[in-house]
Nucleic acid binder design. Structure first.
Lengths: 172, 172
DNA sequence: ATTCTAACGCAAACATTTTGCGTTAGCTGC
DNA sequence: GCAGCTAACGCAAAATGTTTGCGTTAGAAT
């Protein structure tokens, strides 16, 4: 079923993907889809969340800053493209059940945990994951979803560097 | 028309508001709605964006920190409630035309501009609006839309204070 | 005053969503 | 094994929502 959705997403504009279409492609009847997912929104959100799930640990560049920049850049590149934005929209649009939006947050934190753990193992003193989410990932998401002037890819590294720079200066 | 939508939103669960219902309430035919807005999503996003438009300047508490905290708290309180979250979802869900999401960003920046200008007039040295958006509003939005553990109202002030504290410490 | 345009109502065609009913596959407990 | 149970599905009809063509009208422009 997820495969059917992904296939359609790659060949049709997002707006005219319908439940009957997906059902036909997947070889089931529409009623099956409606009974299992409720409506198109939920299904798309489910597929999008699935697609956001990281399949490999973030690349190890040797330094905390490098790892974070690489991760943030890759994320921004993927999610600021029309396809990625559509994923995020589908995820946000879906309401309570199963909470695809929550899954998205969880995946991000999982990846950041790995980066932070590696940094600690190296003897670096990384910020807590929550701080990275707040100061790097959240501004990126905001930029992707709301900003009038879209983010540039370089903004990912800028956010990471700004966060680490602030961290390097101990409070008075 | 907007009035009809708002009326229905206050008496029905978000999920069973339909175009024919709105049309009937507004005393028009459904085709009028479809021709003017395209679909339900666009109309809801339009109404939500309208509702987000600030009607009064942010309250003047006498200090930059006070103004920012008050604004952020009020925003968070409004948008973390189920109704507010629904607004944000509707706005994000709508795609290109008219860009209700962009309007949302614009409104926020307008209000922050006022706060910043007031602070400058007082002789304070406020951060640029972009920085406030990135470090205060974006994390709040992320928390509202994605976070597994929802934000507390006190997080608004915490974000403001953290930003200002970082600012008070000049870079080396 | 006439013409033009944009918006609307109406209603029919069309598509999607919902639902009831019968069937089947996979279990569970005997 | 084997009867009985449950959950999921297909099918098809009904309900609902969406799109479209056509005729009308109100207001602006000439």
């Amino acid at each position: 079923m997820h495969a059917a959705v992904r296939a359609l997403q790659s060949e049709r504009p997002r707006h005219d993907i319908t439940v009957p279409l997906i059902a036909q492609r997947a070889g089931v009847t529409p009623s099956t889809v409606y009974r299992r997912w409720g409506d198109l929104t939920e299904l798309l959100a489910d597929v999008a969340a699935e697609r956001l799930r990281p399949d490999t640990p973030p690349t190890d560049t040797g330094t905390l800053g490098g790892d974070l920049s690489a991760y943030a850049e890759q994320y921004l590149e993927e999610m600021s493209a029309p396809t990625g934005r559509a994923f995020l929209r589908d995820i946000v649009a879906s309401a309570a059940p199963g909470r695809p939006a929550g899954r998205c947050d969880t995946y991000i934190r999982e990846q950041l945990e790995i980066i932070v753990a590696r940094a600690q193992a190296r003897g670096e003193r990384p910020p807590p994951v929550g701080e990275i989410v707040e100061q790097v990932m959240a501004p990126m998401m905001y930029g992707i979803l709301f900003a009038v002037t879209p983010l540039a890819l370089t903004d990912a590294a800028r956010l990471v560097e700004a966060m680490l720079a602030r961290r390097a200066v101990p409070a008075i």
